[in-house]
Design a protein around this nucleic acid. Structure first.
Lengths: 212, 212
DNA sequence: GGCGGATATTGCGCGATCCGCATAATTACG
DNA sequence: CGTAATTATGCGGATCGCGCAATATCCGCC
């Protein structure tokens, strides 16, 4: 019998790989020609599986596109758990977020892997047909973040508003910061935007003395 | 000549009515038998229009179900604008939210109109196939709230993070409060939950001394 | 009161999606 | 190496979402 928690086998690995391959393929093609000009058949072909298999992994094209974002968001909770318990909550959260969302925002040419993820996010935000999947992914990941926050603060996910409130606000802050980042001209650092947004949250979102 | 801003005509009214009728029909049927057991044809029939017309109003069943929630969320921005400029932002926001989301939570039997909306929300939260549309609706309404916040605080929706950050956090808080409300046993006042959630936001989400 | 233009509704048809089901292929494990 | 379990695939069907063109309906104006 396999040690349950351990590495569940080489088979599971393969599954994750095809899942990721399908997601990347969906993103790449959708960015390139627009989502409606991409059929499931194309995505499946790009990933080297049958069309029917695509739907074993994702129930829609949108879900496939959002999957990468989902995985990334998931990691925030993971990262938060990994941070020393001595850090105050907001410091830990900020570090966790920055750690996972900081990407090579400069020097990168065109083909950085992050670059593709970025294009994917831009697409999900701009295409109305994708925002649903995008938000659903973020919200699902949010639940794990809430659990991590509950752990760290000694609150109860089921009974207290607090952990889910924090998770929800953080998720929203990340989204807003990314939206801003994507259209900022001239470009600004995503890290700065994230820190700014989370800082304002932790400060109680006081009305700024006057706009910039 | 029609006074421009006024009532834009009896025709527009009719459109809104069918839109609302379609949305209610979608909610009612979906609550009753589950979304997959409802076809577009059924919804259209219930609203007294042809199936083809349904898709002139909504691009999916989910969108139709979420439409009521969307309209309600929209009104928050409206209400916020209506509040006296003398009120501090968070007081105004809280009042606006409570004003629009407070519903007869007791004494009502089964057939209150609010009751149906409530069932709709419960459905959207529980059915994964609907959360996307639900969140998309909330996020779209969020943009209007951000605009209202910007107006009130003298910030710039395009340039500053602030107004969209507030709108995003408030939207998340409302969602979390409603989730909590829907499963609270024994029941608690939605108004209390909303005030609590928004209060914590305005306080900077400090880690509570210890869980309840 | 009735006409002309504009707008909404409808019917038709097609390509595509999503999923259940049964079968074949692949892998894990003894 | 063989058997059991898991996954990939092929097939079929019920819907869906929407473009298009024809029809019905409403609004504003004379």
């Amino acid at each position: 019998m396999g040690t349950e928690g351990e590495r569940l086998g080489l088979r599971e690995r393969k599954k994750q790989e095809t899942r990721i391959a399908l997601s990347w393929a969906a993103i790449r093609l959708a960015v390139e020609r627009g989502l409606d000009n991409v059929r499931v058949e194309d995505i499946a072909a790009e990933a080297g599986v049958s069309p029917r298999t695509f739907n074993n992994y994702f129930s829609s094209k949108g879900e496939a596109v959002a999957a990468r974002h989902f995985d990334r968001a998931r990691r925030i909770a993971e990262e938060l758990r990994a941070r020393p318990a001595s850090e105050p909550l907001w410091e830990a959260v900020t570090n966790a977020v920055v750690e996972r969302f900081a990407l090579g925002q400069e020097g990168a040419g065109e083909s950085t892997p992050d670059r593709q993820w970025l294009d994917g996010v831009r697409l999900m935000i701009s295409d109305p047909a994708l925002t649903g999947a995008f938000l659903a992914a973020a919200t699902t990941a949010e639940a794990e973040l809430a659990a991590a926050v509950a752990e760290r603060t000694g609150t109860d996910v089921a009974a207290d508003l607090y952990p889910r409130l924090v998770a929800g606000a953080v998720t929203a802050a990340i989204r807003v910061a990314m939206e801003q980042w994507l259209r900022a001209d001239p470009p600004v650092s995503i890290v700065l935007l994230l820190r700014d947004a989370l800082g304002q949250l932790a400060a109680g979102l006081p009305t700024p003395p006057h706009a910039s």
